[in-house]
Amino acid sequence: MPSWFSWWNWMKDIMIFLGLARKTIKIVFLGLDNAGKTTLFRMLKDNMMIQHTPTLHPDRDEFCLGGLTFLAVDVGGHEQARRLWRDYYWDIDGIVFIIDASDKERFREAKKELDGLLREQMTDKCPVLILGNKIDIPTAASEQQIKEYFNLNALVTGKNNEDLNDKNKTRSIDVFMCSILKKQGYGAGLRWLAEHL
């Protein structure tokens, strides 16, 4: 006899298929401090650009994009907060890793954190959206420069969805350049992420 929980999941799947309910996707925002995680988080939630203080405690909220509801956690990016990232890997569907493309002096530090994330077994099936933020700053790195510095050329799966049925890949990864301040680029990245869940 099926349990109440499995019956509820079956009903919810039917409602989502019929367009009567939204699918909820659990994601986590990661990256170094000052990369733009909280700014994006608030932009998606409230469509507002406000000055933020550094994130001292993880913030959890939801926002809707298209036919999906994203349950997102904004985890701080300062050194002490990064020690807690692993605590938020349980039961997530996707990861948004934000890089400050204008702060090349911290690329080494960001690369170390991204490399650790990509080696993590708990997230080895989660698609990873990498956002190169702050492209509105003239000195910002290009998409190709980020892919080269972070050794991503062999890992990215592409923006064309050709990898959706490739069973040999453990996860989908791609880089999208954006300016959260100018409200550019991150929407395409989030759509890509939703398609790869």
Rank of each mutant, 00 (worst) to 15 (best):
Q145W: 03
D163Q: 13
L84Q: 10
V73T: 15
I50C: 09
H196F: 10
F29L: 15
Q80S: 11
R42A: 00
K134I: 04
F63Y: 15
N34W: 00
G116V: 01
L197E: 06
N168C: 05
L71W: 00
N151C: 11
F176S: 01
T55F: 10
A140K: 03
E143I: 01
D74W: 07
I14P: 06
I25G: 00
R83M: 06
L71F: 05
R171F: 11
K169R: 14
K45M: 08
V128F: 08
L181M: 05
K147S: 08
Q121I: 14
Q51N: 12
G158P: 06
K167C: 03
E62M: 13
W7N: 09
K183N: 15
M177I: 04
I99C: 05
M15I: 00
K111R: 14
M1I: 03
D100K: 00
L117S: 03
F29W: 08
E162N: 12
A110F: 04
E162G: 14
V73S: 13
Q80G: 01
M177D: 13
A140S: 14
Q144A: 11
G77M: 02
D103I: 00
G76D: 01
G76S: 02
P2W: 05
H196C: 09
G158H: 02
L129T: 08
M1N: 12
S172F: 10
T24W: 02
W90Q: 09
D100Y: 00
V73N: 06
I146V: 12
P2G: 11
P127L: 02
N153W: 05
I173H: 05
V96M: 08
E120R: 01
W10R: 11
P138R: 00
P127A: 04
F17H: 11
T24C: 12
Q145P: 02
L164D: 05
M11T: 05
G76H: 06
I146S: 03
D174A: 12
P2Y: 05
M15W: 06
I173P: 11
L40K: 12
L197M: 12
D166M: 12
T39F: 11
S179H: 08
V175I: 15
K26V: 02
N133K: 04
M1D: 13
R106Q: 09
L117C: 04
F97T: 10
I180R: 00
G132W: 03
G31E: 07
A141K: 01
I130Q: 13
R171H: 10
G94N: 10
K125W: 01
F176E: 01
G19M: 10
C126R: 14
F63Q: 14
A72M: 13
H52F: 12
I99A: 01
D124V: 08
R86F: 03
H52Y: 07
K111M: 01
D59R: 04
E105H: 02
V96K: 07
F70E: 14
K112P: 00
H196Y: 10
T69A: 02
W10C: 03
T38D: 08
N47F: 02
D93N: 14
P138D: 00
Y186T: 05
Y186F: 15
N160L: 12
D174P: 09
K167E: 09
N151P: 00
I27H: 09
N153C: 07
N133Q: 04
A21E: 13
I146L: 15
D136N: 01
G31Y: 07
K159L: 14
K167N: 03
